[in-house]
Design a protein around this nucleic acid. Structure first.
Length: 671
RNA sequence: GGACCUGUGGUGCAGCUCGGAGUGCACGCCGGCCUGUCAAGCCGGAGGCCGCGGGUUCAAAUCCCGUCAGGUCCGCCA
């Protein structure tokens, strides 16, 4: 069947950061050919009387014997966020186009305003076909299974008033089928595409194409495409050049486990897939590129989490020459604002608050705090430490322990098991947990602390935590760096249970001043605590004069709602500073040179100062879409164990392939 | 590397605590009826190695051990 591109070019204009579906954006045309000349979901009252050709999937069949209804469903297209038209010239009469932004996408005029009718959604992609027994198509159509694909010709007719369906965008009309062509027939499906039932993860991944045909995942992919376009367009207007970097590269000694690719030409040698284009982007800075970005694939052979894909993921990798930490913060806030305003109706206050790493640990017990709500951990070391009869508090200053507390609103009446669980959590992280309950009726305070503290001390504790009747105060005593951790966990749990977080808020914040080094608890040696290429604050002098424990780096994270979205840093571009930093971490100059030959050499030839960041693309999009895990925003995700249930990867290869690569398999012996 | 949750006709679930015949629900599937449905309705039917292996027991979907698969978390992720 010939396919005719009837639109003039059919191109979309680049999206402006201000609005993808702004009036300036031309509507997306339909390919008009032998398959169809209209989209199912586009038919309206104004089409009554016209003859149309439609194609799509048989979504549902209602066979009355003497009368047959079929719901025909469009494919999922860019109409999820762009205006569409069924006419080459961009005549928008039937497609409900207009100056809508995605955030305000509403129902087409003249029908129900149900949110499920929003453009691009399931009920906006359906039209009802009607077929009478006399019609030639009747027998064939009535025998077709759901999800078969057909092309039909028919006349658009008005539905009898009492049968108008408010749930469909096309609900006031139907199409009387005169001709039917079966384009493909479907076998019985492993699960229903049309019904809104839960399907197990295994079945969804194995039949991912059917899972996507159900709607939500594919609609999200359409939105993900918009996300990428907004990011690209925005960064381009900010002067960032999109540069692609190799996927086959060298293994780097730092970081996660590498995925290795054996070399055929060089027996016994391997490429590695990049964990991130970190060294390449720094080399681009040395190359004289002013601003670089890339939606970069990253590969890490590490265990997965709901917010961490196994195997591979994408970063919006960015780097700028002659830039400071402030410049990076501003560019990221501008980029995120463009993404948030184009893709969501959430609010994301700027500038993002900045929290020192050490403060984040103290106030939230984590370096990725959810700052949408309060309940911050308070430090009562100076008020209660050393002053009470209770040994735990009394001895804290001498042991250099911190006394910390968090408010548990309305928790006075919680069961003993809840408090015990907290105490156990505290013990597991090497601290001592206790608590005080303030009964709602104002009666005698209860809990272990009530037995050892004076009334005045309890007042200090309650006031310090901001507790009143009905609340509880949880306390934790331990080393300063870890005393807040169990309290932070309780804080997060309380936030969830009590619904303290505004779901419409994206509370971004910067975590700054990460320590440069940390002691390896086993060897006592100094390790890089994060990125070894970060510039220490104070430069060479700080490295020479200060205790490594006190050196902080120009190293930062951007965090939102308790999710870490990215790490970044002002890079260390000075070989002598790098040499010293690596020396503290126990690397000889020789070893640095051997480990990072390209950077080491490049930095001898005039590297500009530079800084950058690499926000996680999938994770940021998952956050904006309120999705609980990354599989919901990825077309073909691996299962948790890094298996591809659809394609069957990984899989053994032939002996010939192995031999060509000079590889032998030595499986571990079974016990 | 470790912990926990889940696994029951094609799909989703109940049954498992307290062992007693594969018992049940919703959907799907097959056949029949049906001219205004909207995930149509009504009648009938088929479909099961209760993930797999071992153990305890007179008897195991149910209890125990192991294992596989899916998920969540800890470690890990410079």
């Amino acid at each position: 069947m010939p396919e005719t591109e009837t639109a003039s070019g059919g191109q979309r204009r680049a999206l402006s950061p201000q609005g993808p579906a702004s009036p300036a954006a031309p509507p997306v045309p339909l390919l008009v050919n032998g398959y169809r000349d209209r989209r199912c979901g586009s038919l309206r009252n104004t089409d009554i009387g016209s003859e149309v050709r439609l194609a799509g999937w048989v979504a549902a069949k209602r066979d009355h014997g003497g009368l047959l209804f079929v719901d025909l469903r469009d494919p999922i297209g860019p109409d999820a966020y762009l205006p569409v038209t069924d006419w080459p010239q961009g005549d928008a009469a039937g497609a409900g186009t207009g100056p809508e932004t995605l955030a305000s996408t509403g129902a087409p005029a003249g029908t129900a305003t149900d949110a499920s009718l929003a453009r691009g959604h399931h009920n906006a992609r359906i039209v009802q076909l009607v077929c009478h027994p006399g019609a030639e198509a009747f027998e064939t159509l009535s025998r077709l299974r759901a999800e078969s694909v057909v092309s039909v010709t028919g006349r658009v007719v008005a539905r009898p008033p009492e049968t108008v369906n408010q749930k469909l965008a096309t609900g006031s009309v139907e199409v009387e089928v005169s001709e039917l062509e079966v384009l493909s027939s479907a076998d019985v499906l492993p699960f229903s595409v049309e019904r809104d039932s839960e399907v197990g993860e295994e079945a969804r991944l194995t039949y991912r194409y059917l899972d996507m045909r159900r709607g939500p995942v594919a609609e999200r992919l359409a939105k993900r495409a918009l996300f990428a376009q907004v990011a690209r367009t925005h960064l381009a207007t900010r002067g960032f050049l999109e540069v692609q970097t190799p996927v086959l590269t060298a293994s780097s000694p730092e970081g996660a486990r590498d995925y290795l690719v054996p070399s055929r030409l060089y027996p016994g040698e391997f490429y590695a897939l990049p964990q991130a284009p970190q060294q390449f982007k720094q080399l681009l800075m040395v190359s004289g590129i002013e601003r670089y970005f890339q939606i970069a694939p990253c590969f890490r052979d590490e265990a997965s989490r709901a917010d961490r894909s196994p195997g591979e993921f994408y970063q919006i990798d960015m780097e700028m020459a002659f830039a400071t930490q402030e410049d990076v913060f501003r560019e990221v806030e501008l980029l995120f604002s463009a993404l948030v305003s184009n893709l969501t109706q959430k609010h994301a206050p700027t500038p993002y608050p900045r929290i020192k790493y050490a403060d984040a640990l103290a106030r939230y017990g984590t370096d990725k705090p959810d700052t949408r709500f309060g309940l911050e951990v308070v430090d009562l070391t100076s008020k209660l430490g050393g002053r009470t009869e209770l040994p735990m508090f009394a001895e804290a200053p001498a042991k250099r322990h911190a006394v910390r507390a968090v408010l548990a609103p309305g928790a006075a009446g919680r069961p003993r098991s809840w408090f015990d669980a907290f105490a156990e959590t505290a013990r597991a992280s090497g601290a001592t947990g206790s608590w005080l309950q303030l009964p709602p009726d104002g009666s005698e305070r209860r809990g272990p602390l009530s037995r050892k503290l004076t009334d005045e001390e309890m007042d200090v504790l309650a006031a310090g935590a901001g507790a009143s009747s009905g609340d509880a105060v949880l306390t934790c005593v331990g080393p300063s760096a870890s005393a807040s951790v169990p309290l932070g966990q309780v804080r997060s749990a309380l936030g969830r249970e009590l619904g303290l977080a505004d779901p419409g808020l994206l509370a971004f914040c910067w975590i700054v001043d990460f320590p440069m080094f940390e002691r390896n608890p086993e060897t006592g040696a100094w390790d890089f605590s994060h990125n070894p290429f970060s510039m220490p604050q104070g430069g060479l002098k700080a490295l020479e004069d200060n205790d490594p424990a006190d050196i902080v780096a120009y190293q930062y994270d951007v965090v939102c709602n308790g999710l870490e979205l990215s790490s970044g840093a002002v890079r260390n571009h000075l070989p002598e500073v790098m040499e010293k930093a690596f020396a503290i971490a126990g690397y000889s100059r020789d070893r640095v040179e051997r480990s990072f030959p390209a950077l080491w050499n490049a930095f001898r030839y005039g590297p500009p100062p530079h800084a950058g960041i690499a926000p996680g693309f999938d994770r940021l999009f998952m956050l904006l879409e309120d999705q609980p895990n990354l599989r919901e925003v990825i077309a073909f995700p691996l299962a948790q164990n890094a298996r591809d249930l659809l394609m069957g990867a990984p899989a053994p290869v032939t002996p010939e392939q192995l031999s060509e690569l000079h590889l032998q398999i030595a499986l571990p012996k079974k016990p």
